[in-house]
Structures are given as structure tokens and as C-alpha cells.
Design a protein around this nucleic acid. Structure first.
Lengths: 154, 154
DNA sequence: TACCTTCGTTAGCGTCACGAACGTTTGGAT
DNA sequence: ATCCAAACGTTCGTGACGCTAACGAAGGTA
């Protein structure tokens, strides 16, 4: 006879940092699963968006746009280059840099990933009304803008 | 002359799963720093609360109350036992289990950690009005309740 | 010239959520 | 009474993630 397992204490359930961790975990799982079905990754999408939105850039510049560390960006761009989604060529005017360029294949891939991401967001926010979803997005934006990771201030 | 680093694209900043990840990261950092100053851990607090809220329990039961995996719970309870915050004794009526009991020292420690956690939450939610903070908590609760980790259904 | 910074790259760390497996113990079904 | 499946505590390992250190190459500046 199981002694009726106690639920999570209210004092724990009410803690915002815990709620955020749980929600972020669920969100990452949803996104990860969708993208994995296509052999893709969170970071690939971010890099592609950054390229599509603001044009060709160096790896360091992409790193700043996406928040992905430039040490991790290397592998991301390797894989995107392997699938011909980007071109990576040395910058003639500054030979330290690489110029990363979005290819037509990359733009098509971005379109595909975009719908997957959108699907995941919809599933994530499914239990909320559209107004609530907007409100949540707004509140989270305020929060993340306020708590600037130390790296962005440079 | 730096070519004016492009900010994070709006299409990336507007994605809820990304916002959640960022907010959760900031929150965990705040909580982690506060607790680390006391040599404590997220998990210690959760275990202590679970004990204080619903009374003595086995390790597996604590695991369910807190969401901490029972494999990780071992180390947490080791450390709490080392600092005399809990007692861990074999359960006489079911010798598979340990009975974990909160000690007076543990209750005092919980009080201390409680204020640290509360401080961290206040700092986390600082940019929000009280109403907004409540709304955020509510929305996150709905979200996390809806997306049940597969483990809770047992 | 000398110095400091930026860039791409490699390697590595620490934390976290999670799973595998094992020996022990229990309770239930046969 | 015996067998089996499950639960328990424990150890070990994994993969993902955020992050840092260091290096050689190249550029800017004094």
C-alpha cells in the first residue's frame, strides 16, 4: 500500500526561479525534439536567422547577434557549411575574419526550421490564451533585458 | 572603426523558448550566487522545504516531492547529513527505505536559506510591478503544469 | 619598433537533467 | 512456499549547455 505520495510543496511550486527553470526545460525539450527530427539544432536556427536578418557577417559578429559563444559557433558553422547552408570565406579586407554568407540552400533550410520553431512555440504556449502568451513574452523580455548577461556590456 | 555591431535580431528576441532560457539562466545565476555565499545549493533548499512542509520521508519520496532525481538526491542528503541538517536512518518497517528527518539545525538552516531565496526572487522580479510578478508566476505555473515531465505520471 | 586588441580555433571545465545497472528488500500472485 | 515484479538506495556514466583559457594570425596604434 503506497502511502499517498505527497505532491510538490506549495512553497516550492511558488518560486519563480523554479518555475522558470521548469518552463525553460519543457520549452527546450519541445524545440529540441522538433529540430532533432530534422537533424537540426537550436543554434543552427539562431545563426541562420542572424544571417538572414542582418546580412553576411564575421563569426564573432554572428556570435554577438545570437549570444552563442564564438568557440561554439565554430562547430555550428562547420555543420551549416557541410550542408551548404552557408559559405565561409576569408575576409579580403581583414584577414583575421571569415565572411559568412547565407546561401539559397541556407535560406530554404531557414524557412523549414522556422515553421518547426513556430510549431514548437505554439505547442509550448498552447495552454495560454493569445493575450496571455503576449503578456508572458512581454514580461520575459523585460526580465531578460534587465538582467543583462555580463558579456553584452562590452 | 567597428562597424556598429548589429543587435540581436527581433525574430530571435521574440521567441518564447529563447526568452525562457535566458530568464531561467539569469534566475539560476541569482539564486546560485546567493546560496553559494552560504555554501549551499538549490537542491539543499528544495529538500529541506519538502521535509519541513510534509514531514519525514524516504529518499524516493523526497525525490518525488522536489523533482530531484533519486540518484542526485543521494549526494544532497549526504551533505545535509554532514552538516547535521537531517538524520538518515534505516526504516524499521521497510528496510529498503531510509527515513530522512529534519533536525533543529536543519530547520534553522532552512530559515536562513529561505531568506536568501526570497532575496534572489525579489532581485529577479525587480523590474516588474507586483501585479506583473504575480501574473508571470501564474502564467509559468500554467505552463509547467501543462507540460508535465514524463516522470511525474507514474 | 613595440604593444594591445580582435579573430578563428581547439581544448577543457562545471553544472545540470537524466538514465543504466546492481544488490537488497518487499509485496503480491501463483 | 515459491517465484516474480517492483521499489529502494547507490554508483557510475552521458550528453547538452554555458563558459573560460590559450594559441597563432592579423590588425590598429603609438
Amino acid at each position: 500500500m503506497s502511502p499517498t505520495p505527497e505532491p510538490t510543496p506549495a512553497r516550492l511550486r511558488a518560486i519563480p526561479s523554479r518555475l522558470l527553470a521548469g518552463a525553460a526545460l519543457a520549452a527546450d525539450r519541445l524545440v529540441g525534439e522538433r529540430l532533432a527530427a530534422e537533424g537540426a539544432h537550436k543554434w543552427h536556427f539562431a545563426a541562420l536567422v542572424a544571417l538572414d536578418e542582418a546580412g553576411a557577417a564575421s563569426q564573432a559578429e554572428l556570435s554577438r547577434r545570437t549570444g552563442i559563444y564564438r568557440s561554439d559557433m565554430v562547430a555550428v558553422l562547420n555543420e551549416l557549411a557541410d550542408t551548404a547552408c552557408i559559405r565561409r570565406e576569408p575576409d579580403p579586407v581583414d584577414r583575421r575574419r571569415n565572411v559568412i554568407t547565407l546561401t539559397p540552400a541556407g535560406r530554404r533550410r531557414l524557412e523549414r526550421l522556422d515553421t518547426l520553431i513556430a510549431d514548437a512555440q505554439r505547442e509550448l504556449l498552447a495552454p495560454l490564451t493569445p493575450d496571455q502568451a503576449d503578456e508572458l513574452t512581454h514580461l520575459l523580455t523585460v526580465l531578460t533585458d534587465h538582467h543583462r548577461p555580463p558579456h553584452d556590456a562590452r
